[in-house]
Design a protein around this nucleic acid. Sequence first.
DNA 1: CTCTTTCGCTACGAGTCGTAGCGTAACTGT
DNA 2: ACAGTTACGCTACGACTCGTAGCGAAAGAG
Lengths: 243, 243
Amino acid sequence: MPCPTHRRRTGRTGRPRSTEANRAILDATRAALVELGWGKLTMSDVAARAKVAKTTLYRRWAGKSELVVDAVADLFDEHLELPDRGSLHADVEGVVLQFAALLERPETKTALMAVVAESTRDEALRDRIRSAIVERQKRLVLLGRERAQARGELPYDSDPSVAASQADLIFDLIAGTVVHRALVSAEPVDAEWAATFSTLVVSGVQATLGATTAANGATTANASPPAPAATDPPRDPAAAPPG
Amino acid sequence: MPCPTHRRRTGRTGRPRSTEANRAILDATRAALVELGWGKLTMSDVAARAKVAKTTLYRRWAGKSELVVDAVADLFDEHLELPDRGSLHADVEGVVLQFAALLERPETKTALMAVVAESTRDEALRDRIRSAIVERQKRLVLLGRERAQARGELPYDSDPSVAASQADLIFDLIAGTVVHRALVSAEPVDAEWAATFSTLVVSGVQATLGATTAANGATTANASPPAPAATDPPRDPAAAPPG
DNA sequence: CTCTTTCGCTACGAGTCGTAGCGTAACTGT
DNA sequence: ACAGTTACGCTACGACTCGTAGCGAAAGAG
C-alpha cells in the first residue's frame, strides 16, 4: 500500500490502529468544539469530520467525554509552560496569563467545565482528567516552587508531604481562581488583574508557610544542590485508549 | 378600564401559573439530579416526578439548563450565609466550609459545572446564572468586607470602584479555589485545609490592598496586620525572602 | 358570564446513541 | 507464502430524547 508510515513497535499482533486517524479525530474534535460547542457536539459529526467510521470512535474512546478530554489535553501540553522570569511573582504572573489565554479559546472554554461536570458521576473519567491534564500541569507548580526555593523566596521543604499539599493548594488556587474569573464571572484576565492576583498568591503562600512550618528556620535556606529534576516527560500521543 | 400606569397590579388576566407546580418541579429537578446526575437527567423524567405535563416545563423554562440553574439557586440561598465569628479569618473559614458542604451535595456537584459549561455558549444562560447565583452570593463578600473594615482589619474604601474589583477578586478567589479542590482535585475541604486557605486569603488580600492603593494617599489601615510582611513588589524581580 | 391564560394529554418528526454484523485491509510470527 | 489476529469502513437497528403542535378542559380576572 502507498502508505509505509512509521508505526510504533508493539508486541501485539494484528493490524495496528492508525495513528493518523487518531490525530485526525482529535483535530476534528477540537474543530467541532469550536463550531458547535460541547452540547451540540456529536460523535457522528466528529467521525464525519475526521473521515473515519463512527464505530472507530467507539473502538478507541468510551464516549464523548473521554474523547474531549484527550482533545483538550493536547492543548494544555502545547500552550502551558513556566517561563523563568527571575522571581516567583513574575513566574506566577506569566503562567496566569498563559492559562487565561488558553481558557479564552472556544475549545477549552466549552469543554473543560463540561468534562469536569461529567466526572463528578464517573470515576474513570475523573481519573482520566487527572492523568491527562491535572497531574501533567501540576509540574508547573512544582517547578516554580523549586525555582523559588533556589532563589531563596521560599524555604526548602522539611517534609515532602507538606510540600505536596502546598503544591496542591497553589494549584487549586491559581487554576481555580483563573477559571472562575474567566468562565463564571466572565471578566477579562488582563495584565493588571494578573499582577494583582500574583501579588496575592505570593504573599498568601508565604503566609501559609509561616503558619505551617513555623518551627523551621525558614529564612535564607542553606543552599543545597536541589538536584534538578528532569522536567520533560516524553509525550505519548500514541497512547491508544482501550478499545 | 386598562389604565396604562397600573397594568402590573396583580399580573395579567387569565389563569395564573400554579406556584405549587413550580415548587414541585424544582424539587423534582433536585431529586433527579441526585439520582441521575446532569447527563442523564431528562425533561420527561422531571415532568413525571413532579406530576406535571412535559409541556408545562417548556412553558416556564427554555430548557434543561435554565431549569437546573433555578433549582440549585435555591440551595445556595438556603445554605450560604456569613456567620459573624469575630475576625476576618474566622469568617472566611466559616464560609469556605459552608460552601464546601454545599458542593458535596450530589445535586450541586453535578449541576454547577454543567450549567457553567453550557453558559459559555449561551449568553442568556450566563446572565441567568449571574443574577440567580453569582450576584446573590457576592453579598457575602461585601458583608464580610464591611465587617472587617469595622473591626479595623481592612482599610475603608477610598474609591468604590476599587472596592468592587477587590470584592470580585475575593469572590473568584474563594469560590474558584474551593470548587477546584472539591470537584477537580477531588480532595476533601476539611477544617485543616480551610484554616490554611483562610490564612492565605487574609494575608493575600491585605497584600493586594497595600499594592493597589499605594498610589493613593489612602488612609492606612489603623490595625496593622499581625506578622507576615508583604515582601513582594509587583513588578520588580528583586527577590527578598522574608527575614 | 365572558375573556384570557394555563393546564394535562397525545402524538409527531427529527435527531442521537451505542451496538451488531459483515467483508475487507493491514500487520505479525513461523 | 501462509495463517492468525486485529482494525477498518459500512450499513442497519431499537431505544431514547428533544421540542413542538393541537386539542379540550380548568381556573382566575374583569
